[in-house]
Design a protein around this nucleic acid. Structure first.
Length: 755
DNA sequence: TACAGTCGGGG
DNA sequence: GTGTACGACTGTA
């Protein structure tokens, strides 16, 4: 017998040992422990069919216990169900597949719950949780007790060992020749060839370092498959990157799937046992919050680190709801795995016309106050108890939703608010900690990452509420949230107007308002307090703009566009929406020039007209175009990156992306729908040159005309609020003052052109 | 001119 | 296996 303390690293089902847990013990040992962990799922249906299932299960060779019982369905209340308890969780998936084949007509519950969630629901122990464990001499867990909660704001830090592996080239682009290996103490190169040596070297390094995390670039899509294939071909059975050497790695195939109006590509994946492999390039949200964010999401959701790192936060929300249901004894309906919704609140707002969108007052405005409701939709769900099972329930506690005349039951806290409240509370607590730290504090990056990770869980939860296929989704609850949202925004507008503000714009959860004399942060305080008082929702000051410009539609200059603007806060921070800098398909050069133009405008001293910067901007644009024509813009800065939305054969119009993908196809580098294709615009018939082609593009071949047009278009978005039209920008930049007069209708330009 | 194809969003 | 918003805008024919 031994009493241990340490952090839970990994947990999975095992044919021989039922449940395997890896513990990072306080003394630094990594221990493989085991535990019996029987699990139960349920079937519901006509009695004769349940009896048939009972007989079928009695004949199975594996250890199964059967019982008739009553369980709660979230909507239908108590249900008569057959409880099927499997003594080893490793048998459950195969057994369940068999059952659904033979009894497709029955309804199943708790049948596809990730093991870690069940474990968290039973023991309150989650990935990276610090816990106390009592084990017998054969490593079997007798007791396990958490020493911290998943809602702790400052969790203990497991001393994880990290090994970073990355190739010297991007494999889809150029054949790499060596790997960079970094164990935190030294960084060294390992040649890729010869392969037997590479296998031996990596195997030895992983044995020696014994990392808890192998962090790679292109590990999923290139390195691991390459290693596995080589090991197989060379008969190198000793090669194993798992900590649990009795296991083969999990290799999942690539796929493209359609979700919410776009194709998403998910590269193949390689997961390890006993340690984590995370490929930064195949981790959907990794760029948003990194390793600390992935750890935070694993902690609160209970999903394995390797899963949550690669998935969208949508799966995390589902996990949170499942765990909440498990803890409360509510049945979790079985369904085939969903494509994860990568649909943020704003997407849905657009899609469903749910959010309130105003037309902004066009043009340039000074001293504009922007205020935003904090996590508006989650806050509404918690504040007004919006949940699929509470909406539409009339009783003496019910409150009616504005506009909809639909009641909401307030007699019990709904599943969704119960799930969300601790997330909101934890995020606010982390943000409060952050507020007390400087940007240079060593704790700041991790806290920021964790706040962002929680924010993302909150953002996507709204989508899941109304998603018709979500387990606990219901469209009525979704409509309820947007109705409350519109109501709150209108109340905010009234509050602002009552306090003497002019409302310039409103967008879903934000307001842009202005009042003479209000240009300091603390002056907005009464407005914030008034709005919170009238709506019951927290609202925060985003900032006060020195100036902000709301842009019109490019197709009709009289029509405002809800989300096309740029501005500069008093802090000097720039905010842009809807313009080229924000688009992922804008070549970096154009995005940088556009941003540089805003930066130059931001430097115009208060009191001087912004238009005074125009001559400088025109000179700047001329210089940039000269650089382009002289081939001095670095080639990567001119790359366009667009997502391939379908197979190339399915295109009816050969878009530039399609043509670039065809070029790659022709050289044996096919690309899948959902993958990004990078290319240059070049002169000639094809018009494009794919970045991943073996032939490097000639600078002379670049379509400078096209890049010039794109640049001037981006520039004119910035100059438009200063009263300069695109044709005028074009003439001013391309025509040389000493060659021809510049026909300008604006005084400042005429003055400048004549000098 | 018609319409096909791509993007954003959230902070 | 997963299921197709919507408006703004650009590019092709």
């Amino acid at each position: 017998m031994a009493d241990l303390r340490g952090w839970l690293l990994d947990l999975y089902a095992d044919e021989a040992d039922s449940l395997v847990l890896w513990l990072l013990a306080e003394d630094g040992r990594r221990l493989r422990l085991t535990q019996p962990f029987p699990l139960t799922f349920y079937a519901h249906g006509p009695f004769p069919r349940l009896r048939a299932l009972w007989r079928f299960l009695q004949q199975q060779p594996v250890g199964i216990q059967l019982a008739r019982t009553v369980r709660q369905d979230l909507f239908a209340g108590p249900l008569d169900v057959l409880a099927v308890t499997v003594s080893n969780p490793a048998w459950q998936p195969r057994l369940f597949r068999q059952i659904t084949r033979c009894f497709p007509d029955l309804t199943y519950y708790d049948a596809d719950i990730p093991l870690g969630l069940r474990y968290a629901a039973v023991f309150d122990v989650f990935p990276l949780c610090y816990c106390a464990v009592e084990v017998d001499d054969s490593g079997r867990i007798q007791h396990i007790t958490p020493l911290e909660s998943r809602w702790d704001v400052s969790p203990s830090q497991p001393p994880l060992r990290l090994l970073t592996i990355e190739p010297n080239e991007e494999p889809a682009h150029r054949e790499p020749s060596f790997l960079w290996l970094d164990d935190g103490r030294s960084r060294r190169q390992v040649p890729l060839q010869p392969l037997p040596l590479l296998l031996a070297s990596l195997h030895a390094t992983v044995r020696r370092v014994d990392p808890d995390v192998i962090l790679t670039r292109f590990g999923d899509t290139w390195l691991m498959p390459l290693l596995l294939k080589s090991a197989q071909e060379l008969g190198a059975e000793w090669f194993n990157l798992n900590r649990d050497e009795g296991k083969a790695v999990i290799h999942r195939q690539e796929n493209s799937y359609f979700t919410y109006g776009q194709v998403v590509y998910r590269g193949q994946q390689v997961h390890l046992y006993g340690r984590y492999h995370i490929d930064q390039h195949n981790a959907m949200m990794y760029g948003e919050y990194g390793l600390h964010g992935a750890f935070e999401q694993a902690r609160v959701t209970g999903l394995p680190v390797q899963e949550i790192a690669r998935k969208s936060p949508g799966s995390g929300v589902t996990a949170l709801q499942m765990q909440e249901a498990l803890r409360r004894g509510i049945l979790v309906p079985y369904q085939k795995q969903q494509a994860e919704g990568f649909k943020t609140a704003a997407q849905l707002i657009h899609a469903d016309r749910g959010g309130l969108v105003y037309q902004p007052t066009l043009g340039l405005h000074e001293d504009v106050v922007e205020i935003d409701f904090v996590s508006m939709y989650p806050s509404i769900m918690v504040r007004f108890n919006v949940s699929p099972e509470t909406v539409g329930i009339e009783n003496e506690t019910s409150e009616h939703i504005p506009e909809l005349d639909v009641p909401v039951d307030l007699s019990r806290v709904g599943l969704v608010p119960r799930t969300l409240r601790p997330l909101l509370v934890k995020r606010i607590a982390i943000k409060e900690q952050l507020a007390g730290l400087t940007a240079l504090d060593c704790r700041t990056p991790a806290l920021k990452a964790r706040a962002a990770a929680l924010k993302w869980l909150l953002v996507v939860c709204f989508g899941y509420l109304g998603y018709k296929n979500a387990r606990f989704g219901r469209i009525e609850s979704h409509e309820a949230v947007t109705a409350y949202g519109r109501d709150c925004l209108l109340r905010a507008k009234e509050a602002a107007e009552d306090l003497g503000y002019e409302v310039l714009h409103m967008y879903v959860d934000g307001l842009w308002v202005k009042k003479a004399g209000v240009n300091k942060n603390e002056q907005a305080r009464p407005l914030l307090d008034e709005i919170t008082q009238r709506t019951g929702l927290p609202i925060a000051l985003e900032g006060i703009y020195k100036w902000v410009a709301f842009l019109p539609s490019r197709l009709d200059a009289r029509v405002p566009v809800a989300n096309r603007y740029f501005g500069v806060f008093q802090s000097g921070e720039i905010k842009t929406r809807g313009i080229e800098t924000r688009r992922h398909d804008t070549p970096p050069w154009i995005a940088q020039v556009q941003l540089a133009m805003i930066q130059r405008l931001a430097k115009v001293p208060t009191g001087r007209p912004l238009a005074s910067a125009v001559p400088d901007l025109i000179v700047f644009l001329r210089q940039q175009i000269d650089e382009l024509r002289n081939g001095r813009i670095p080639l990567p800065h001119l790359l366009v990156s667009q997502r391939l939305s379908r197979e190339i054969g399915a295109y009816r119009v050969p878009s530039p992306t399609c043509r670039a993908a065809m070029q790659l196809d022709a050289v044996g580098k096919p690309r899948r729908p959902g993958q990004r294709i990078r290319f240059w615009f070049v002169r000639g018939k094809a018009g494009v040159h794919a970045w991943d082609l073996p032939v490097v593009v000639e600078t002379a071949a670049l379509d400078t005309e096209r890049y010039t047009t794109l640049l001037l278009r981006a520039a004119s978005a910035i100059l438009q609020p200063l009263g300069i039209e695109e044709t005028e920008v074009r003439q001013a930049v391309l025509a040389r003052a000493w060659q021809m007069p510049i026909p300008m209708s604006h005084d400042h330009l005429v003055t400048w052109a004549s000098t």
